[in-house]
Design a protein around this nucleic acid. Structure first.
Lengths: 219, 219
DNA sequence: GTCTATATTATGATAGAC
DNA sequence: GTCTATCATAATATAGAC
């Protein structure tokens, strides 16, 4: 019996080596989803292993089989969030003409993602957990985000929509300040409204359409 | 002896009714200052009675003689911060011409105050403590802030600097989105730089000088 | 991979002596 | 108005049985 069981188990592991791994990935997915819920409800700082375990229906120590610490969960959420946000921006860019319209569409898609993933977006751009520092890998993703914006601005200059000053570094800071302002106000004052409704998200288009005045063609 | 002591105490209280009260006010002042330090160092959420008592050099229960709860301390910081910020805005307005320049000067003074009082500013405009809800009195102060901005915008319209659309409600949302965006970026990315340095606070003037394009005279 | 038990530390708050 | 003692609760994390 004992040998048979052993063989059965080993055999199963050999035949379906991914079965356990898949279960594991599902659990990790569930943990991250619940973490997002907790952060949305109790604030980004309000995430705790205890509450996570409670909602998952396990005891807190079990979580250590999936993540080595609470900070590691923040880390996973940060990296995943950054990638999702980058992809949202990319898709927004692709679904529009190049140039200024593309930039606006890309950033709006990113903004929609942020609004739909408030807690993670706060983690990404507002640094609400002082003891959490994103891993170096996360830096590479944010560089890509910057490159997308730089490219869209360059397109707009090439198309004659913006003046050459939009190719300088400050233009990216200007654009990021606009989107962060809109999102900050939406988060703080009307966090449950979707993009396009309320007093603040419509300001995004208004502000972006001022860019030609900020970077005049003869400048 | 006992009667004498009683009389002495009562007498002292009658002759200098303010002496104890003044000591008390000094301690309250000290508590609020330390609370700001803690919040700046550990995040707005990181404020705790234990750390507060540690730094003040007393035991935690002693704090209850001055504030009935931790939330009451947040409340006091919120109200005081709002008043200080309002006064900064008022002084900035008074030190400049009326109209657009006044609005810019007022908001810049408010921005300087926010940067110099980062933790309290976060408490005011970013709501980082989900279980804290500002008292109704605080609402009146923020209404005054809005009125100052509305007045400055109306001046700018009267002076022919901005078109009539700047008298509408959306103009105030636009202006507040600009300042919040600049401050969000400064807080998250370069919290220790003073106003005017770094990549983001200079964006404030840039964005504000786009207002005439947002509210054209013929609009 | 789950659990119980535990260590350690911290929290906000109250009772009551002095 | 200060303290000690205490309550009730919560947190992260580890050891080790199963």
């Amino acid at each position: 019996m004992a040998p048979t069981d052993e063989v059965t188990q080993t055999g199963a592991a050999a035949v379906r080596p991914d079965r356990r791994a898949r279960r594991r990935q599902e659990t990790i997915r569930e943990i991250l989803d619940i973490a997002r819920d907790v952060m949305t409800a109790e604030g980004v700082n309000g995430l705790s292993l205890a509450e996570l375990a409670r909602r998952l229906g396990v005891q807190p120590p079990s979580l250590y089989k999936y993540f080595p610490s609470l900070m590691a969960i923040y880390d996973a959420l940060f990296l995943e969030g950054q990638r999702q946000n980058l992809q949202a921006m990319r898709r927004g860019l692709q679904g529009a003409e190049s140039g200024l319209d593309g930039l606006i569409a890309g950033l709006e898609a990113s903004g929609r993602w942020c609004l739909a993933n408030r807690a993670v977006a706060e983690l990404l751009f507002w640094r609400p957990v002082p003891s959490f520092h994103p891993s170096p890998e996360a830096f590479a993703v944010s560089m890509e985000m910057v490159e997308l914006q730089r490219g869209a601005l360059a397109d707009a200059v090439a198309k004659g929509q913006l003046g050459p000053a939009a190719n300088e570094e400050g233009a990216i800071y200007l654009v990021s300040t606009i989107i962060v302002g809109v999102l900050s106000q939406a988060f703080a004052n009307e966090p449950d409204l979707p993009w396009g409704e309320g007093r603040f998200t419509p300001m995004f288009a208004t502000l972006m359409h001022l860019l030609p005045a900020a970077f005049p063609l003869d400048g």
